[in-house]
Write a protein that binds this DNA or RNA. Structure first.
Lengths: 103, 103
DNA sequence: TTAAAGTACTTTGAAAAACAAAGTAAAACA
DNA sequence: TGTTTTACTTTGTTTTTCAAAGTACTTTAA
């Protein structure tokens, strides 16, 4: 490891993406509307942040119709779960670091 | 609390600022060069992220000369320490949330 | 039956943030 | 004396974030 933040995953830097992933770690899926309410974000925001996570293959998207209406469901992929766990480990290490630097 | 991320502090969303603050929580000061090495960031990067934290009054800056050379030292303010602790609490709550939503 | 309102998103384009390259100024070295 | 190094700061471009507007229906209600 070269520096103290090298294992912090850039993809989870943003609070909305952090929120999406933590919801998906404890629930096996969420839909667009629920995510929007849980995170207090705008439509465009949810759309772009889920797209970013999808691009990294950290979540998958399932589209269907429920009661004749479109429904979009997000699920964490194995890759996403792994990456998120590693991110949390890195966070924990960073924060608990009795940083071995002596200034 | 309106949503699950409302107590996550936007100012600490970025990994470099997260790094700076966690270093400053356990060390009462760091200088520019040390920060740069610890975080593996470029000069401009350190400059702009410290400036962002300074703007929020989360850190203070002390400029002096050491061995005839300019030295910039960063220190977490009380406000910054408080904000960071609250941020960590919010993070912990978010991550441990057996989110009371039942999908 | 048809116009207006609502739902569930996606797209767009402007604003803000992040980045590294270039710039500055003094010190050290040769 | 000139060149290199150190310790930053400034600049301008790229990338990201954001919410407003757009799309494609469905529901309500006149």
């Amino acid at each position: 490891m070269k520096n103290i933040i090298s294992n912090i995953n850039k993809a989870f830097d943003h609070r909305i993406r952090l929120g999406i992933m933590s919801v998906l770690m404890v629930n096996d899926h969420v839909d667009f509307k629920t995510l929007k309410e849980l995170l207090g974000a705008t439509d465009g925001n949810i759309a772009s942040h889920t797209k970013a996570l999808e691009k990294q293959h950290y979540i998958t998207v399932e589209k269907s119709f429920i009661d004749r209406k479109p429904n979009t469901r997000y699920i964490a992929s194995d890759k996403g779960r792994k990456a998120f766990k590693e991110h949390l480990d890195a966070l924990e290490k960073l924060l608990n670091a009795k940083n071995d630097l002596n200034i």
